[in-house]
Every structure is written in C-alpha cells, then in structure tokens.
Design a binder for these strands. Sequence first.
DNA 1: CCTAGCTTGTGAAAACAATCACAAACTTTC
DNA 2: GAAAGTTTGTGATTGTTTTCACAAGCTAGG
Lengths: 214, 214
Amino acid sequence: MKPRKISDSAIRRLSHYLRFLEAFESEGRETISSDDLAERGGTTSAQVRKDLSHFGSFGKRGLGYSVPALRARLAEILGVDRRWNVALAGAGKLAAALHGYDAFRRRGFDVVAVYDNDPRKIGRRWGAITVEDVRRLGKSVREKQVEIGIVVTPAESAQEVAEAMAAAGISAILNFAPRKLVLPAGVTLQDVNLVIELEALCFALTHEGWEVGR
Amino acid sequence: MKPRKISDSAIRRLSHYLRFLEAFESEGRETISSDDLAERGGTTSAQVRKDLSHFGSFGKRGLGYSVPALRARLAEILGVDRRWNVALAGAGKLAAALHGYDAFRRRGFDVVAVYDNDPRKIGRRWGAITVEDVRRLGKSVREKQVEIGIVVTPAESAQEVAEAMAAAGISAILNFAPRKLVLPAGVTLQDVNLVIELEALCFALTHEGWEVGR
DNA sequence: CCTAGCTTGTGAAAACAATCACAAACTTTC
DNA sequence: GAAAGTTTGTGATTGTTTTCACAAGCTAGG
C-alpha cells in the first residue's frame, strides 16, 4: 500500500470493478477470481490484480476475492461508501437530465441545489429543490454543505461560476462546458466534453485504416 | 504521414486545438505558434508539434502555423469538415438535452432521429422530428442515412439497441448507458459514463495525498 | 546578402502503463 | 496428509506516450 500515485485510467477501472461486484453480489456469488472480474470489464487478470495492489491485498490465493468484502473495500477506496451533496450550476436541459438521473442517486450523489442567472428560471421547483439565483451560490453552497459542483452553463459563464464554486469551498468540479477552466490548485477538475466524444468517433469513421490506441 | 496509429488522447487534443483555432480565427489572428496553442490547451509545444506531425507538416519555421489553414486541415483530419447524421436511441431527459444541445449542431452533428419503446413517447414531436418506435430503427436508420448512434437508454436495453444499430449499418456509437457493450469488429464505440466521472472526483476528494496521473 | 532571432519537425531519452511469468499460498481430491 | 490444481501478488519485461533537445528553415532588420 505504499505508492501514493495512481493513473486516472486505473481509477476508472476500479469504478468498473465496483459495478461488476455489485452485480455479482446481488446474484449471491460469494467469491470471484481476478480472471472473472477481468472478463466482465474487458481487461486482463493481471491488470485487475495490479489495480487492486495499489491499495493492499484483498484476495486469497487459490480462491480469489470475497465478493462482498471486495465490494465494500472498493466503495471505501473510491470514497462512495457515503453520500455526497452535489450542486448544478446552470438550469438548462442537461441540468434537468442530470437532476433526474437515477444512477446518480443510486450511487450516493444527491443533487441538493441548482443555480441559474435567468430570472424566469429562478424560483422554479425542481422536485424537492428550488432553482436559486446564481448570486446566492456562495451562501447556498455553505448552507447546504455542497461538496461537488457540476458546471452545465454555456461556455461563456463556465469560468466565472466555477470560480465562485471554488471560492465557496467546493474542491471537486465536473465540467460539461466546452471550455478549459483554470482553477486554484487543490480543486480537482474533470471535464466531460460531448463534442470531443463525437469528434473522436468521426475521426475513426473518417480514417478506417488507422488504429486508435487505447 | 506514415504511421497508421494514434492514441485516443492525441485525437482528443486535436479536437481541443481545433476549438482554440476557431477562437483565434474569429479574433482575426493570422498565425500562431505551437507554444501559444499549447498554453491554451494546457499542454506543451512539443506535444502539439508531435500531435500534428502524425499527419504532415503544416507550420513554417520561424513563423508558426497559419490559423485558417491549420483550422481547415484539422477539421478535415478529424472528419468534421462536413455534417453528420446522428440518431438517439432512448427518448428520456438526457436524449432531450442532447437533442437540444446547440454545440452539436454548430459542430456539424444533426440529430435526425429519436427512437424509444415507450408507446407514450412514440409519435411525439421533438422540434422537426418525431419519436419513432425502436422496432423501426433499422429501416429508419437506412432511410435517414444515420451515421452515428447515441445510446441513451437504460442499461438493460443498451446492448440490444446497440446491436440493432450495428445491424442497420451504423459503425460509430456513443454510449451513455452504464454497461459494457459488446459489438462486432468494425463498430467504433465511445463510452461516456457519468457515474464514473463523479466517482473519479470522489476518489480525489477522499485521497488528498494521492497524485492522480493524467 | 548576412546575421540575429524565432519556431518547426523529429530522433533520442525518459516516464509511464500494461503485460508477462512465476513463486508463494491456498483449496480440493484422493 | 501428500499431490494436484487454483489463484494471488509482484518483480521483470515490454510497449506506449510524453518530454527533451537540437539541427534545419524561415523572417526581419540592417
């Protein structure tokens, strides 16, 4: 459990493993080998074992891993053995989709606030929450103890609103706006750029002969 | 222009460069150095030049790159110098958000069809298009010459609907369902898993001491 | 036309990530 | 309880991506 370093892709694989383990657990399976886990996730057993070895040894040689134990440990490692308060900045269609996205709630992510700058949207009820004026963001984030921010504003407002989030003490931001955000060190940023995803597909369509690595 | 191989991350960087170049072009800038491009994109100038070198040499030593020429060439390389027909499988909130997502249209992606299996949704108008029965997918895809499919169904239906898309001749699929899709060789798949994005953020929040590599 | 100043394109080196391969440790079978 | 069969955990190896560093090529200014 020594190295304090891990690749982004390894973390994403852990996330996958957790999902598979939950499925196996609900099927009542007791143990699982790295091989089985790998097959489900499209990797190799060595990869699975390397990924897990970053955090300790959880398996039994000759037997494999205890499904419930590894599931619990992985949830703990990923930090999803608790619930998280999430705020959406931007009350557009994408925000509405994320607000209603059941997979978030099931995984422990509760949308507790939505902000916008459009007077026609402010005050609207979204289920149990009310769309708030983005100028109240700082105060509201502190009141509601928001820990994760999701930026779903147009590109123009993204930087400003992300800064407000960071200033309010949010240190993890998921950004859907197609813009490079510059944030203070200590704030973790993940970008989801849907246009880039489509363009990567186009590249593959356009360059049939090319091999696109990993 | 020899090597027929490129990494996924390089393609994504090209996509970024294209966005920056468009911004620079609309500012009326004539030329740009790899250094300036890199700064905007958070990489290094060497990386920019390596990425571009996969496809030829477009710069002038001592001067840099012509902004309009490189923009045009990059659009061509990525395959976005034309428009693409896109279909959505699943008529939920996420689909609605993507259907209304202006950045797609601006970048040349036209949503020309939406499919669902819910009789209450089938027949509804979504702007200029009508939600169709997913059983008509094969026929409709061919009629409308759909080239890219986006899967926004619940996890249970994702595999089935993706197979139908592949069978109808679609060879590029963007999958939002949290499920590993198995598709025939020749079909390019990109996954967007929003839960994994949030979990990666949680990991960072939970493991402050850890360095998460790239 | 020559020199000074940039900036590209690219081999070579370094860093990083995935895979291999095998000893060690456990289970099962007889 | 010994032998055969599994499966882990990990050092060593291989492969890939990023960074370095510099010659070559261009511009500009006298």
